[in-house]
Amino acid sequence: MASDRTRGLVWRKSSRSGSPQGWDSSCVEIALGPAGVVHVRDSKDTSRPGFVVGPGAWEFFVGGLKR
């Protein structure tokens, strides 16, 4: 069930989730919120609460993945 702070957000999942290369289908979904915050949740159980990170923390995290 969506909370008031996540209702209306557009969630998206990695295009590599469940890929044929045999990677694990475990994945997270993200949604951009007001002021650039990023909401993160488990794609297998969207009823559980997720967490929110600021735009700077998200950019740092994604930058580390690209290395």
Rank of each mutant, 00 (worst) to 15 (best):
P20I: 00
V10F: 11
S19R: 09
K66S: 12
R48K: 12
V62F: 05
R12Y: 04
R41P: 02
R67S: 11
L9Q: 05
R5A: 13
V37H: 02
S17W: 10
G33N: 13
G18K: 05
V40D: 00
V53I: 09
G22W: 09
R67D: 12
G18W: 12
W11A: 07
H39E: 00
R67C: 04
R12N: 09
S47A: 12
G50S: 00
E29G: 07
D4G: 11
R16C: 12
V38G: 13
R48C: 08
S3C: 01
P34Q: 08
D4V: 12
D42W: 09
V40P: 01
G33W: 02
A57T: 10
R67V: 14
S47W: 15
S17T: 04
G22T: 04
C27E: 14
Q21A: 10
W11D: 14
R5G: 01
V38Y: 02
T6C: 07
S15D: 04
T46Y: 06
G63V: 13
R16F: 15
S25D: 08
C27S: 12
G63L: 06
R48E: 13
V10D: 06
S47G: 13
D45Y: 07
V38N: 03
A31N: 11
D45H: 09
T46D: 01
K66C: 02
R7P: 11
S19G: 12
S14R: 08
P20A: 05
G36W: 09
G63R: 15
E59S: 11
P20S: 03
L9Y: 09
D4F: 00
V28C: 04
M1T: 01
S26W: 05
V53Y: 13
D24N: 15
